[in-house]
Design a protein around this nucleic acid. Sequence first.
DNA 1: GTAAACCCTATTGACGCGGTAGGGTTAGTG
DNA 2: CACTAACCCTACCGCGTCAATAGGGTTTAC
Lengths: 148, 148
Amino acid sequence: MLTQKAKYALRACIHLAARPGETPRIAEIGAAERIPPKFLEAILLDLRKGGVLESVRGRKGGYRLARPAAMVSMGDIIRLIDGSLAPIRCASRQNFEPCQDCADVNGCVIRWAMLKARDAMATVLDRCTLAEAAARRSASDDPLDFVI
Amino acid sequence: MLTQKAKYALRACIHLAARPGETPRIAEIGAAERIPPKFLEAILLDLRKGGVLESVRGRKGGYRLARPAAMVSMGDIIRLIDGSLAPIRCASRQNFEPCQDCADVNGCVIRWAMLKARDAMATVLDRCTLAEAAARRSASDDPLDFVI
DNA sequence: GTAAACCCTATTGACGCGGTAGGGTTAGTG
DNA sequence: CACTAACCCTACCGCGTCAATAGGGTTTAC
């Protein structure tokens, strides 16, 4: 299950991807993407520590992507915020943790199925970059303000 | 995220798939699969209400699959217990729920990506049947008792 | 009729998630 | 150099969900 936090992180990053060269403030991003500003602050901090974002301090400060938007995938962000793409932790490739209740990790049938599921999902999410997402969003005329 | 409950449900169902014609008791299944019996009771009840299992009441009672093991997929069971395969509810095809915080459901970029992820994962899990899982488990000599 | 099995509702404890509070630190601007 | 707008960081809290348990009620083989 994708957490709300990861969803916010994706929205914020897509927002930044659509504004190359700028370093918008937390308050701006929060207002545009409808994210509680203090919560967003914590999220952006995590993204910076994870190497996805860079920050500029002091007056006129703000955030920007640390890499080109085409080099950051949705999978990267979800892994950073939620810890893993896999539906179960013992089926994670980058954040593996053995589960307590099955004795033979490698023989476990459920893990085998979840690994296949994880790989299928990861293929999709690691190929989907922020650049693509930003382009697709602007094409649909900023969905966040579309209805209301 | 796959819940512990869904994991137990899968284990119990694979257990039953490996014993066609039998109707083992809750206590037996629980002991063999290391599932707390009262918790298992609630799970099997849900599976029965969901049409996956049948029960026999009274002395000599127990549970069996309501359909052939080849006709029940892991996806069926996960959907029944956890409600949805999708990483986010607005990207579920069988248990769709709109999310509060994005205005245009169809234009949402995140939902678009999650739908693709869901479809990839569902393809895997809906093709993986209990029959296949049971066969694979017995081939690896019952993983639950393999190490310890 | 009795015991073994499923059926069902209610409850509980722990924990993670979503969000907030309130300072500390940095650096442009006058 | 003072001011202040911005990020930085730690701590905290309410709530819901998950995992599990308790304790009866009902059915049926024997």
